[in-house]
């Protein structure tokens, strides 16, 4: 049904069309430079995509992909639960915040990859190490966003709920959590990006697991087509996963995305 409201929603197509145009032009340039052999080491787009298809046909892609994504999903879920629970506690209790703030801020600022060797010492050559890396990468971002979201939730709405007789617990769940929702979800989206990075960087360090191991093997062979093929797979994976979280965000929090 085409109501005036739904027609207005078509407007954001403008920048979206530009974005698509930019990407198409970039891909065309890539193909052109590669196909004309303008840069000796730079393969064309169709060669890279062909390699992706080849790898998939040979079944070389599926196993590392499944390995990587399994770790990713487990690590991400752990991060979501830990991040939301601890972040909320930090927002609600001044003392929990005092106790953890320094460490959380340090983890936000520190290059998380530094801690991979330490996790490797602790957990050895196992997917447990990789999951721990993902949790390290993702949970802190989710935690900080949740803390800021809950702490910054509208106190006017909280007052309103209390004035109509809500107790502190009811006001917290009916109003505070709900109005913190969009920002918590934007933390979840950031966290997903971080989780993919943690997954890949962790694998790169350990070098026997997943997509990164494949990537590394091509470096040894100076196979730039192979390297870019893996890059394409990882980029698509990262974009798809972020889009899924973004989609959930839009479904749950449409009200916050419209101008008020």
């Amino acid at each position: 049904m085409l109501t005036p409201g739904s027609r207005r929603r078509l407007l954001p197509r403008g920048p979206l069309a530009l974005q698509a145009l930019g990407l198409v032009v970039g891909l065309a340039l890539w193909e052109l430079i590669g196909a004309l052999h303008l840069i000796s080491w730079f393969p064309s787009l169709h060669a890279v995509l062909g390699r992706v298809g080849e790898l998939a046909a040979q079944g070389k892609l599926q196993e590392p992909l499944v390995q990587s994504v399994t770790n990713l999903v487990v690590g991400y879920l752990v991060s979501v639960v830990a991040g939301i629970v601890i972040g909320t506690l930090m927002a609600v209790s001044k003392y929990v915040n005092f106790a953890l703030r320094v460490y959380v801020d340090a983890l936000m600022a520190a290059p998380s990859i530094m801690l991979v060797p330490v996790l490797y010492v602790l957990f050895g050559l196992s997917s447990f190490t990789l999951i721990a890396v993902i949790v390290l990468y993702a949970s802190v971002f989710i935690m900080v966003n949740t803390r800021n979201a809950v702490a910054g939730a509208s106190s006017a709405l909280h007052d309103m709920a209390r004035s109509f007789g809500a107790g502190p617990v009811a006001a917290f769940f009916w109003v505070t959590v709900r109005s913190a929702g969009p920002e918590i979800l934007s933390g979840l989206r950031l966290g997903m990006g971080r989780a993919v990075k943690g997954m890949f960087n962790g694998e790169l360090f350990i070098a026997v697991f997943g997509l990164a191991a494949l990537d590394k093997s091509y470096e040894g062979a100076f196979d730039t087509t192979g390297i870019l093929a893996v890059a394409v797979v990882v980029i698509v994976l990262a974009v798809v996963l972020s889009t899924i979280v973004e989609f959930a965000n839009r479904r749950l929090n449409g009200w916050a995305l419209s101008p008020s």
Binding site: W41, V196, K197, A212, E219, I227, V234, A238
Partner: peptide, 13 residues
């Protein structure tokens, strides 16, 4: 959102 590290082998090659 992409792990930049995927391009590292390319740079080294």
């Amino acid at each position: 959102v992409t792990p930049t590290a995927v391009f590292m082998p390319l740079v080294i090659v």
